[in-house]
Nucleic acid binder design. Sequence first.
DNA 1: ATGTGACTTCCAGTCCGTT
DNA 2: CAACGGACTGGAAGTCACA
Lengths: 73, 73
Amino acid sequence: MNIQEILAENLKRYRRERGISQEELAHLAEIDRTYISSVERRQYAASIEVVDRLARALGIEASDLLSTNDKEA
Amino acid sequence: MNIQEILAENLKRYRRERGISQEELAHLAEIDRTYISSVERRQYAASIEVVDRLARALGIEASDLLSTNDKEA
DNA sequence: ATGTGACTTCCAGTCCGTT
DNA sequence: CAACGGACTGGAAGTCACA
């Protein structure tokens, strides 16, 4: 389990918990729609900047998106 | 407190707790010494890849380096 | 043992589209 | 709504000399 997978899995999980689409999250986090798709498909090693923006959009902290524990927000 | 500051502060704190220099950490994480210096001085929004390598070198998890809580490892 | 400016390379991230 | 492609740009990644 590398860091990109951890981010991808956490992102998908939290996003689905919120019941929002990639597109909506993209809008909320002000990140490109196709980029969110790429991250969820482990295509890139995102910067902490985008991890932070994604976390804020989901109402959690950046560290939650990189955590290996599967705890609820 | 933005994400770069959080990373910088956590990195410095954990590194000093371990009593190791930037040079030693650089060697352990296989990252250039001056790059670690840059990160600690908030010059970049590092990628999660780099954060992960630094965390491993410090014996912690990537999420610990981005956490806002000041807990011990 | 660390900070810094200058530098080059390359991929993160955006924007257009189609399947 | 998501995966995926091509083309592009800015800035992270990585290194050096010197203070």
